[in-house]
């Protein structure tokens, strides 16, 4: 049995004539420590699949398990706990909280954890150091570049050392050089044992993954 196990996932939106199938019977398994890229044309269902994997979007039918936990059998609050303990998210448009400093953004996943303030700060500083942003802890998101924002998003995703990292088109807004730096960061995380699932349009980015899943018209075709 795989660390991440999806079985016959189906996701439809709307009802009756307006019903749209986003995911049409997808099954897969991902082992712990794998680096998987997910590719496909726009509207193929990649982001829907990623949100299902992120415990944020219940499939219409099918089961999704991580570490043998049936995620959609959990109540919404338990799903929130699962996201906090098992998942790190990196979004395409960074989604940093604009009025919090870089360090505070990174500390967000630690907010609801019982930990001393100083320890939270030092944990965030370590994550920022790892992504190469030491010295920029007290800047606001508006005071750093796009590449740096993505690094902050990566630092925030890994600060509580989750076993799984979900990345959605994270290099979509970055230039080639910065994209390469970010991909190298993800590769480094994967080498440290983190399971990474990355949605991307870029074949260059997909090359960093050890396995590629191709989604087309709501189905897994490769």
């Amino acid at each position: 049995m795989s660390y991440i196990e999806a079985e016959n996932l189906i996701k439809t939106y709307g009802r009756g004539e307006a019903e749209v199938s986003a995911i049409r019977g997808v099954s897969f398994g991902i082992e712990s420590g794998e680096f998987v890229s997910m590719m496909g044309e726009s509207g193929a269902g990649k982001s829907t699949l990623l949100s299902i994997m992120g415990a944020m979007n219940a499939p219409t039918t099918g089961s999704y398990k991580v570490d043998d936990i049936d995620i959609y059998n959990l109540n919404p609050e338990q799903q929130a706990d699962f996201r906090r303990e098992f998942l790190g998210f990196v979004f395409q448009s960074f989604h940093l909280v604009p009025y919090l400093t870089v360090a505070e953004n990174v500390m967000l996943p630690l907010t609801t954890i019982k930990m001393r303030k100083k320890q939270k700060r030092s944990t965030a500083e370590k994550a920022l150091m790892w992504v190469g942003l030491s010295g920029k802890e007290d800047r606001l998101p508006s005071q750093i570049s796009g590449g740096e924002k993505e690094r902050v998003a990566v630092a925030r995703a890994i600060v509580n050392e989750p076993p799984v990292l979900l990345a959605d088109e994270i290099t979509g807004n970055l230039d080639t050089k910065t994209s390469t730096e970010i991909m190298e960061l993800l590769q480094g995380l994967n080498q440290k044992g983190m399971t990474i699932i990355m949605v991307t349009h870029s074949p260059d980015c997909a090359k960093y993954a050890r396995r590629m899943m191709r989604v087309s018209d709501g189905r897994l075709v490769q």
């Binding site: 929130a80 996201r83 998210f89 989604h95 909280v97 967000l108």
Partner: peptide, 16 residues
Amino acid sequence: TEEIGILRAIGFRKRH
């Protein structure tokens, strides 16, 4: 909406 979505995505409970 965005900010709350981020907080919920990274594991904030409803009560938080």
